[in-house]
Nucleic acid binder design. Sequence first.
DNA 1: ATGATTTTGTGACATTTATCAAATGAAATC
DNA 2: GATTTCATTTGATAAATGTCACAAAATCAT
Lengths: 189, 189
Amino acid sequence: MDILFDKLIQKYSANQQLSKQTIAEIYTHLSILSFDKKHLLIRENQRHDYAYFIIKGAVRSYYLKDGIEVSTWFAFENDMVGSLHNFRDLPSRETFELTENTSFISINLKSLKSLIYSNVGISNFISAIIEEYAVFLEDKIFYSQLMNSLERYEALLENEPQVLQRIPLTYIASYLGISRETLSRLRSK
Amino acid sequence: MDILFDKLIQKYSANQQLSKQTIAEIYTHLSILSFDKKHLLIRENQRHDYAYFIIKGAVRSYYLKDGIEVSTWFAFENDMVGSLHNFRDLPSRETFELTENTSFISINLKSLKSLIYSNVGISNFISAIIEEYAVFLEDKIFYSQLMNSLERYEALLENEPQVLQRIPLTYIASYLGISRETLSRLRSK
DNA sequence: ATGATTTTGTGACATTTATCAAATGAAATC
DNA sequence: GATTTCATTTGATAAATGTCACAAAATCAT
């Protein structure tokens, strides 16, 4: 269990040496759990006190637009999933659904967040998670403006090959912002 | 000067009470400066140690795509401008150009960043800035997927009327991801 | 295994938007 | 104030993608 937790701690404390006490403190807000494929981890329009770090499995996030699911991302092993809105104590804008049976480290946001004013290590730990997310969002915007659909598909193939292997094309098309038919036609080139 | 600095401090320490010492510490990394319209505050592909808080004026950010400027945002009074890449000690992906004569508070990122491991107030101060930026980016993606061009234009008109008053339509079209001609036609409805 | 469900692919046509060209309008410069 | 530069609008055409309909293929559940 400590080995699993360490992977998470390491990832978001690369720039600092956390004290043994702080690590122990963070541990008390973590636990391990798993759900089956199709389980809804976080639901659109609901408050939720946890974020999750994927040990094994896959998660898709989406929101509804005119009753249609619009996929926003796919997360796998060693990725963090959670809603920034939830972190800010607001209802999530997205639903997070498991596309495989998945096991997680759950992170109690509310209780961990209450410590960021007194523990500088925890403050920087949380900050690193948010910074990583900001970089992810910035890249997403940058590449979506810079590239056309074919280039975006090819970049996904290049940078995130497991998405192509583990996620249905219907969801990928939706993520790329094109129709299933258009993606199918792009692929047959 | 303290009044100007306070506006910045207040904005990003809403959730915590900073000590007098911490505020004084932050002050030593701030100064005031101004440049004329068309000045390039931060340049694409360059490292830069400062972020800026706009006291009076307007800034446009853009990057080059096949030699064409693609506008990414417009900032005004009490907005923060800066490059997350620069904060991470990488070359900026965007250029920041003044569209009006503008005065700023400059923030020395490198020296302030060196304190986030020892001063929890400063860590949370910086974290609040990044969190605000992540929310901004998430909204940008969300609304760009949810709405069509006309709706995005109308939302901009509704939520950021000063953009329409202070920024040329050419730049706005580019920001909305459509051609000048298309924006012109949307407007004539 | 087999029937049901889900996922993927293809054709015909409609819609949106880009692109190119040119005219008009507004602002900056001398 | 005349001239140059930049910004906006309008028209014609082309390209990209969406939508609808349906078929084929793959996957799932019993």
